[in-house]
Design a protein around this nucleic acid. Structure first.
Lengths: 194, 194
DNA sequence: GAAAAGACTTGATCTAGATTAAGAGCACAA
DNA sequence: TTGTGCTCTTAATCTAGATCAAGTCTTTTC
């Protein structure tokens, strides 16, 4: 249950076995079924969730009723509506299980307690957040500089597995293109590639 | 010189006056003139810079020679090519002073020392990074869901001053639209709003 | 295991914003 | 103070990708 989390933490900071053991008490393991919502937009986001197994997405719905995928989170990733979680304000995003998932949930009080009792986790989260910023900036640049096809090929390079686990319309939404365009691009790429 | 930085830190974490005093020793104050580069893409980014006065931008240049503004940083903001700074790899971004600027530069060794000696700064940076992620996610959603005009109006709401300090072509680039389109939008908005 | 509901494909048409191309307004350097 | 080169504006044209509209193929569900 906790191996993946520990591994992830160890990849960023050094922790002792005692700390490792202590860590576990802050988390609430939980399962969600495919299509189940971890968070409904408008509610307060209660958890910062570490994905142990399965695939999750966060997304918004705009005025015209179009969905926009903000993030995919597979095994080893964290997901939350961070604004809502931190400020305890109404969530802008929905969070939904794309596959059956197992997560480790951290409530805000539990997270605060953990950060006070295990200062090394403060460093872990700082590093995690920093890497996330680097990735998000690259995504903005890609969105501004690449064609639809280039964006798709880039995603295939960075997260090759994801493309086959998430429905195409959600992949399209993540890329900021329509499902029709993605379908056409995939056809072209397949023809070129073979 | 350090007031703005201290104020910014105090807005996120509680620090003592002793810590406040100690803090200063890690930073190198520096000035850059308008149009001067703080970082050339391809170099290793040596600093994480806190802007005390003036305006800075970071940007990439794509294959076709088009610039893409990644970030503006005015007084009270941090700027860096974080990927390059952290991993000591070649920078993807250029960083340039838009106005004459005063910054407080943190080298990587100085930052590491600071984080070890003043653990409260670990928390400060975690919180800073978290907020940055929230902002970046909102930017991605805006890029995917709004029209060019809506993106411009949103920017006017969020950073009303910035629009008049940065050249219009750079504002356009930040929004992911062409300078021509921005010019037309500004005209329309002015006419509507009169 | 039939049928209803989604998810994906394919084609025709449309449009927001890009591109191309001049001019007009400014700013700073000589 | 006068160019010389930027930056911004305006107009004409073009195009990548959106929208609209059927179909077909796959899952669910009962």
């Amino acid at each position: 249950m906790y191996e993946l989390l520990i591994e992830n933490i160890r990849s960023k900071v050094a922790i002792s076995e005692a700390e490792e053991e202590q860590l576990k008490k802050y988390f609430i393991p939980k399962k969600y079924r495919k299509r189940q919502y971890l968070l409904n937009g408008g509610d307060i986001c209660k958890y910062f969730s570490f994905v142990v197994d399965g695939l999750i997405r966060s997304f918004t719905v705009d005025d015209k009723g179009h969905e926009h995928v903000v993030q995919f989170a597979a095994e080893g990733w964290w997901v939350s509506d961070m604004g809502s979680f931190l400020e305890e304000t109404e969530a802008m995003y929905h969070i939904e299980a794309i596959e059956d998932v197992e997560v480790l949930n951290l409530t805000k009080p539990a997270m605060e307690e953990m950060l006070n009792e295990l200062p090394v986790m403060e460093r872990y989260f700082r590093i995690l957040m920093q890497k996330n910023i680097v990735t998000l900036q690259q995504r903005v640049v890609a969105d501004h500089s690449l064609t639809a096809e280039e964006k798709y090929l880039r995603l295939m390079e960075i997260y090759p597995k994801l493309i086959h686990r998430a429905p195409q319309q959600q992949v399209a939404s993540y890329l900021g293109i329509t499902p029709e365009t993605l379908s056409r691009i995939r056809k072209q790429v397949a023809e070129k590639g073979d």
